[in-house]
Design a binder for these strands. Structure first.
Length: 412
DNA sequence: GGCCGTTAA
DNA sequence: TAGTTTAACGGCC
């Protein structure tokens, strides 16, 4: 349980209030402790601890220094950030509740009111709220979930169906913002500023209406956050989940009061590692980020500093419309261990064929080909090669991939 | 340009 | 018995 990756349960994740977290940790640990996966997680954790220790040496020495000369520089950077604050938009983040699980329950009433998850024995993608009460959550292997909850029903993924429902909700989004941005099958940002000019309804009423239409047309519930920018709207959509919404007024005082006590972990982009680093510096909330801005400035890169400062001021992008250009296309498969070169070449051929078909569908090409190897000890190794000309055919991908692979053999 | 680590859904 | 897949980005060399 020492390993924080493994025992970790996002304590405030919706649906986990009533359970005995220690018991859940214990069961997960017992199911994990002797696995190659767990060993690798421990190794990664070890590496992080070393990195953390180095950072703390720097931090302790900073604390002994007089940093007043930095103050005005940092304050200037805050002024610059403050000038980016834009309170003229009403941004909505909509997130479907336990999306895949809810669809399966809707279509098979015998699953309702029972702990259930979508996925398979090796990995779950979603769990319903009954299952979350047992500590069963997404990104957890099904066989471990079964130990937490032996009655758990695991339903296989049905992506065609989820895509069809996603299309339905996107059509609803487009009624309110034709330039909405989908973030995944079950999530989107909308800018309803323009729409609000066409109605007497309040932002809250409009969002209630969107959620009502979703429910009427799909029999599924959604949650939403309403705020001045995407960062805040996203945080807000989580607050009244499931089947709820939260409005944060477009007002500097309200925003600062909202953000100040907020745990850094609530911020999209701050995950478990960054949280650990910040906690080590005694920074647990966004308010503490601001209080420690000079240390943050000295400890992190300028891009990280800029990110943290904007987050702590509740400043975020209001741009919803995006003409998104993809930067990479990939395919990956986990398979039982292979070591004979010919077997590996055959695997590479399969993946190259699939990838080429996908590239053709989108009519795109690339000039860097990368292979990630997952070893039996779960270590990941990436090797990539760039070429002069854009490529897209299975043969080209395979041939370059084969060179990369051959250079790495024997892999073990 | 190449590789690793972090994050997110 | 068994621990995913896809995409993006920053840091570092």
């Amino acid at each position: 349980i020492r390993n924080s990756r493994i025992g970790e349960l996002a304590s405030n994740k919706a649906g986990l209030q009533g359970i005995d977290k220690e018991k859940v940790k214990q069961i997960i640990y017992e199911a994990s402790k002797n696995s190659a996966f767990y060993l690798n997680e421990e190794k990664k954790d070890e590496a992080l601890s070393i990195k953390l220790k180095q950072m703390m040496i720097k931090y302790e020495s900073l604390k002994k220094q007089n940093l007043s000369a930095i103050n005005s520089k940092v304050d200037n950077l805050i002024q610059v950030a403050e000038r980016e604050r834009d309170l003229s938009h009403i941004i909505v983040h909509i997130d479907m509740d336990a999306f895949y699980a809810s669809i399966e329950e809707r279509d098979n009433p015998s699953l309702r009111n029972k702990p259930m998850a979508v996925g398979d024995n090796s990995m779950l993608t979603t769990s319903n709220y009954e299952a979350r009460n047992y500590g069963v959550r997404s990104a957890m292997p099904g066989f471990i979930a079964k130990k937490l909850c032996p009655e758990l029903i695991i339903v296989p993924c049905n992506f065609d169906k989820y895509r069809a429902v996603s299309k339905q909700i996107r059509e609803i989004f487009s009624r309110y913002d034709p330039d909405y941005t989908p973030m995944s099958l079950d999530e989107a940002y909308l800018d309803i500023t323009k729409y609000l000019e066409t109605t007497d309804k309040s932002p809250d009423n409009v969002v209630e209406q969107i959620r009502r239409e979703i429910h009427e047309e799909t029999k599924l519930t959604a949650s939403a956050g309403i705020a001045a920018n995407k960062l805040l709207a996203k945080i807000c959509s989580d607050l009244n989940k499931p089947n709820g919404q939260y409005r944060l007024q477009n007002n500097v005082d309200d925003i600062m009061n909202f953000v100040r006590p907020l745990s850094v972990r609530k911020i999209p982009g701050i995950g478990r590692v960054t949280e650990r680093i910040l906690n080590e510096m005694d920074i647990k909330t966004c308010g503490a980020i601001l209080d420690n801005r000079v240390y943050i400035h000295q400890m992190f890169s300028s891009s990280s500093f800029n990110f943290f400062i904007r987050v702590a001021l509740g400043i975020g992008s209001t741009i919803v419309k995006t003409d998104h250009k993809r930067k990479s296309k990939s395919i990956s498969r986990t398979f039982s261990s292979l070591s004979r070169p010919d077997d590996l070449y055959e695997k590479l051929r399969e993946l190259a064929d699939h990838l080429a078909a996908d590239l053709l569908k989108e009519r795109i090409q690339g000039k860097t080909i990368a292979i990630t190897f997952k070893l039996v000890n779960f270590k990941l190794i990436t090797r990539e090669r760039s070429v002069k000309k854009y490529i897209h055919t299975a043969d080209d991908i395979y041939n370059i991939g084969k060179q990369i692979l051959t250079d790495e053999l024997p892999l073990n």
